[in-house]
């Protein structure tokens, strides 16, 4: 079922999609985009990969369990809220560093938060897609 063209195309597109996803995340604060759409993009990349090859290989490419992605994503969001708490302000108070990092722009707790969003979205989408694909395989047996 897996066609060669798809495999080859995926090889080429896969890294591009991941890059684009990162781009969406970073520009999100200033222009349309952001963690959510970025996450979907990255997830699509892996989903495509899974269709082109197999779920198992896609899981390998991901190197982490999808749940761990969700968890870490949530944790990022959670941690991004803490500095404010320690600084005596309420939860989720934004913190900005003055250091300007090339490409990324200013480092901030807000970026961490949005990265968390991205990770959760990737984790969620892939959990669903993988589970569904595996369930299908099992039912076909």
């Amino acid at each position: 079922m897996t066609s060669i063209i798809l495999v080859v195309a995926t090889r080429l597109i896969f890294p591009l999609m991941l890059m684009f996803s990162l781009f969406l995340l970073l520009r999100g604060h200033d222009a349309p985009g952001g963690g959510f759409v970025g996450g979907l993009m990255a997830a699509s990349a892996f989903a495509l990969f899974a269709f082109a090859t197999s779920v198992t290989r896609a899981r390998d490419a991901l190197r982490r369990s999808t749940f761990r992605l969700i968890g870490v994503g949530l944790l990022f969001a959670f941690i991004s809220g803490l500095p404010g708490l320690f600084a005596g302000s309420p939860f989720l108070t934004a913190m900005w560093t003055s250091a300007e990092v090339p490409v990324i722009g200013k480092l901030s707790s807000v970026l961490l938060f949005d990265t968390g969003v991205l990770l959760v979205v990737v984790g969620v989408t892939l959990t669903i897609v993988f589970a569904m694909a595996e369930a299908d395989e099992e039912e076909e047996e």
């Binding site: 761990r68 969700i70 968890g71 949530l74 959670f78």
Partner: peptide, 11 residues
């Protein structure tokens, strides 16, 4: 929330 997150990480 934190405990749930940790649980999910250690699925």
């Amino acid at each position: 929330f934190l405990m749930a997150i940790l649980s999910i990480i250690n699925w």
